[in-house]
Each structure stands twice: as structure tokens, then as C-alpha cells.
Design a protein around this nucleic acid. Structure first.
Lengths: 122, 122
DNA sequence: CGTGTCCTTCACGAGTTCTTCACGAGTCCA
DNA sequence: TGGACTCGTGAAGAACTCGTGAAGGACACG
């Protein structure tokens, strides 16, 4: 079927359809590039956890992050812009200086038990 | 499987009669070639979702898309022309660079649970 | 045959995306 | 306060993806 790698991640109001490269924010489709999408997936799969740049680089670009390579940061920036454009008043990606990034779908400061009606986030 | 070949897909103002190879746009019949018709069906069956070139190729041509084969793009272009000729001011087929194409009957921007009064889309 | 339609492939230009660089803001610590 | 370090992000060119006109082949029909 066309649904195999295509489970769906739910992260707050975000719906990430893995098989299709589609992200819906409150119903509206976001247009993400391939790198942006894969970065979002890498972050959302580990929602709530801090993910290092090395790990993010490995999942999105494949291979080893070289010293001085800022591509992860650049794409986090792009991704943030698109997420915030679609859903202002919400911060999804948090920076933990020296450690990495953390994807947190809840409104800033608020943690709540989510109801996921699709694949569970880790 | 999906539905038998004699049902009808409704996608926005488009009515696609599977058994007859007939497409009606606001009542008027479109004249599509076989490839164009099957491409439209492959897209419309998964309306709202991004469908990759590989998947489209498999449904329309059958078999595996080879690197460098642009036939899907060429037929998307032809299909777009005919759809837009029949219904200007509407964009049905959206490109998602790096992923594939998405058929979206609703006015740009709005996704909603559709009411199909024929066969349901997936 | 001659003509028309459809299909496939090629090629070029336009448009997007990716990578890298560079500068500045913020933080930490002595 | 000053230095070292971490991040955010605009910008520019390279690299890649996509849109589409056109050429040529296959096939059907008169």
C-alpha cells in the first residue's frame, strides 16, 4: 500500500505525514523543502528530548557533522520561520546552548498529556 | 484495493467517471488522452496527499520509474493545461519540489474534510 | 499513402533549494 | 571589561529540480 513508511506523527496541532512529505498545521498544508521536512521529522520523533546537532545531521544529511558546519543551524532557522508563520504565538523548537535543539509542541511553558490518535511519539 | 472501475470520483467541481474515462468539469466534458486521464485518477484518488513521481509512474505506466525519465512531469504539464483551460482561476495540481505532486480541488489554502456524494476518496 | 493523435524523449531556461560564508548579538567567566 | 564561544540569520553562488516546447516514432483511419 501507499501507507507503509507513511504513519503519521502528531505533535500538538502539527500533523506530519511521513510517507507523503506533508505537514499540516491546523489543517493547512505547510510547504517545506526536503531538508526542512526531514529536520522536522528528526526533531518531532524525539519530541521533548534534546537532540544534538550531530544526531540531527546524521538523520537529515547522513554522515558525520564536520567542525564548522552550520547547516543544522541554518535549517533550524528556516524551519522556525515556516512554523511560526503558520502558527504564530507558538514556539516549537527550543535551543539548548551547548547541547542541541528540543522540539516541544506545547505552548511555551505548558506541558500537558497529549492525545495522539496516530502513531505515538517515542 | 480501491473501488471497482465503474464508480465516480468527485473532486471539487470535477467529476471523474472511472468506468467511462470521462471527466466533467462543471458539466462540460474534458477530452483527455488515456495517460492524462489515468494520471488525473491517480492524483485524485489521493486528493490532498503528496504523491511521488514513482507512485504516479507505477499507477499510470506500470513498473519502475527510471532515473531521468520525465514523463510524469510532461503529463502533469499537459493535464494542468487542460484543467486550467476548462476552469481558469483554479489550481488543482501543486508541485512539492523534491517530493512529488498534490492534487487539491479546494480553493488554494483551505483543506477541509470533504463531503463526497459518490465514492469516497481514500 | 497522407493526416492526425498520442506517446516518448530531449533540451533549455526558469525557478528553487542547498551550502557556505560572514557579521553581530548574546552568554559565560575570570 | 574583555576574550572566547555559541547561535541566529542575511546573502550569494552553486547545484539541483521542474516546466514546457519541440522533434520523431508508432499507430489508426480514411
Amino acid at each position: 500500500m501507499h501507507q507503509d513508511s507513511s504513519s503519521t506523527l502528531y505533535a500538538g496541532e502539527l500533523e506530519i505525514r511521513l510517507g507523503e512529505g506533508l505537514v499540516l498545521a491546523t489543517g493547512r498544508a505547510l510547504t517545506l523543502s526536503v531538508r526542512e521536512f526531514e529536520l522536522l521529522v528528526a526533531l518531532a520523533r524525539r519530541a521533548g528530548a534534546i537532540v544534538t546537532r550531530e544526531e540531527l545531521y546524521a538523520s537529515v544529511w547522513g554522515g558525520q557533522l564536520r567542525a564548522g558546519d552550520r547547516s543544522v543551524d541554518v535549517y533550524v532557522s528556516k524551519l522556525r520561520n515556516k512554523l511560526e508563520e503558520a502558527m504564530p504565538d507558538r514556539r516549537f523548537i527550543h535551543t539548548h546552548p551547548g547541547f542541541g535543539y528540543r522540539f516541544q509542541p506545547q505552548p511555551t511553558g505548558q506541558l500537558s498529556r497529549d492525545v495522539h490518535n496516530g502513531t505515538l511519539l517515542d
